[in-house]
């Protein structure tokens, strides 16, 4: 029985991502959010690039609509209570994630950076002085 749903977002379209190996039987979905596309006047080229990238993910189902409403419907359709996704700082996507959390558990795979310190020093030169050795070490 399927217990989870993988929700791919536009900042994490990687067919080799660990989440696909960890949840091999989970349905994989992507939603083109019409309100977002219209509000931010996203170009055809960006949408096509995303679409082409998605098609490398086996068995992906792609939807058009309002992200949260579509996910709600899919949670019911698949009868699952857990959504698997990837982290992004994108405030629009994190807003959707917050909404989903009201309906389901959310497992978010973090982005990987060589430096774990999460405070920003506000100037890159300062940041680089503090962290270059981490970035330059394999």
């Amino acid at each position: 029985m399927t217990e989870s749903l993988i929700w791919v977002n536009e900042d994490g379209i990687n067919p080799e991502h660990k989440m696909f190996r960890d949840y091999p039987d989970a349905p994989r979905v992507y939603i083109f959010d019409v309100s977002y596309l219209q509000q931010w006047r996203i170009s055809h080229h960006r949408l096509q690039f995303i679409y082409e990238s998605l098609l490398e993910i086996p068995h992906i189902s792609i939807y058009k609509g309002e992200t949260v409403a579509v996910l709600d419907s899919l949670l019911q359709e698949y009868n699952v209570r857990e959504v698997i996704t990837t982290a992004t700082p994108n405030h629009i996507i994190t807003g959707w994630q917050d909404e989903i959390l009201k309906q389901a558990d959310l497992v978010t795979y973090p982005q990987i950076y060589p430096v774990q310190d999460s405070s920003s020093p506000r100037r890159f030169a300062r940041y680089w002085r503090q962290s270059d050795r981490f970035w330059l070490t394999p």
């Binding site: 006047r41 690039f49 995303i50 082409e52 990238s53 098609l55």
Partner: peptide
């Protein structure tokens, strides 16, 4: 409603 200049981007999407 998407802005489209016609033609394809040379940037093919995907890993």
């Amino acid at each position: 409603f998407l802005e489209s200049p016609g033609g394809l981007s040379p940037y093919l999407g995907g890993r």
